[in-house]
Design a protein around this nucleic acid. Structure first.
Lengths: 204, 204
DNA sequence: ATCATTTTTAAACACTTGTTTAAATTTGTT
DNA sequence: AACAAATTTAAACAAGTGTTTAAAAATGAT
């Protein structure tokens, strides 16, 4: 018996679809209930409030987002390979869920996001040992001596922005969804080349 | 007599402050009126609707955003210098108006944004002649042969994302506003180095 | 089958929202 | 000063919002 057919699960999945596309303020409990095919009172029955439902959804989205990232970081592979794989995985995951980076980023700028949802992201990634590896690689000279903040920001900028700014980029370049997806495949190669070339200069 | 003291101007400026921080759905006409110190009915009197007011504000923000960008592109300078100056100007402008890239990007993803607000951005930038310059530079080998889409996307990713993802990055790295600003100064140097190194490889 | 518990339904509630209305006030024109 | 036009004010309106309530229906336990 699949758990995804329970009322609670239906509401949660519907909420995930609606919240990730429209954000917390951009949709109503009634819209979510309609999306789930349920009565609006059930939002409060199962989740106590719209806010609580949002927190549950946000937590779930973050977990999914980080899960396969952590898998890549735990691999026994050279650091440069791991970074390449990380970028590949980001593009792959987000291509399937293009609304997620924008959702996470904008809701993280909202002060109403409950503190309990501000995951201890760094701790979870640190557990994989990736930061130690980066540190060592900088000592041996394999990796450019650049602070962790900038290293992560460079990677995230080039992996997430292309999806976050889809509307704007389509307007700028007058392209439709299909063409956009094609361009991103090519774009990924360029940014891999650029970032790897910069972060691991010794290979040049 | 400064035009900025008229009722219309006061409402517009207040709306700019509120819309850029909270987006269209995240605030109400009453909130904007309160911010302006005016009665809410005046929103409709002067701008006919909340939607129209938003369109006016969006148009203004886009114009400001692009104005100095175009100034840089029109300069009589070598292309590489122009690109450097462009990046400098982006960081400078957005440091003063950190809410703007996130605002533009997220509202551009909203289907409700009026088509009249989808500026013919490309045309305006093309007028500066920058794209011809880039094309020529690719022919002469000065600039990497990379399609325009990816070139613009690389530049925008590394200039805008650091501001858009402020909340997330602060959470990841446990840093406050002041420290974040400091890190961005350093980060700018890294991304200039990376992007210029990639886009203009002949200089290596 | 009976009863207890849980879930669902639909309406109600109090508040918020964008907009409209009508009257009061201010400004402009002669 | 008189009148017209523009602006401002405050209330009203209709619809939407998150939440609560009470009753009906479904499910679980014996």
């Amino acid at each position: 018996m699949s758990k995804d057919t329970t009322t609670e699960a239906k509401i949660k999945e519907a909420a995930k679809r609606v919240f990730t596309n429209k954000g917390f303020s951009g949709c109503s409990s009634r819209e979510i209930a309609k999306e789930a095919g349920m009565n609006v009172a059930l939002v409060n029955y199962y989740f106590r409030s719209k806010e609580q439902l949002f927190n549950v959804v946000f937590h779930t989205v973050m977990d999914d987002f980080m899960l396969s990232m952590k898998d890549v970081f735990r691999m026994k592979q050279p650091l440069e390979t791991k970074v390449r794989l990380f970028i590949e995985r980001e593009y792959e995951f987000i291509t399937k869920h293009p609304e997620i980076p924008g959702f996470i980023v904008s809701e993280m700028n909202r002060c109403e996001v409950g503190d309990s949802n501000k995951q201890f992201i760094m701790d979870e990634i640190a557990e994989t040992g990736i930061f130690e590896e980066m540190h060592q690689a900088q000592i041996t000279g394999e990796m450019r001596k650049i602070d962790l903040f900038s290293a992560t920001l460079i990677l995230m900028s080039n992996c997430h922005f292309p999806f976050i700014a889809k509307g704007l980029m389509q307007e700028i370049h007058h392209i439709d969804d299909e063409k956009y997806a094609q361009q991103l495949v090519l774009h990924k190669q360029y940014v891999i080349e650029m970032m790897i070339g910069y972060l691991f200069p010794a290979k040049k």
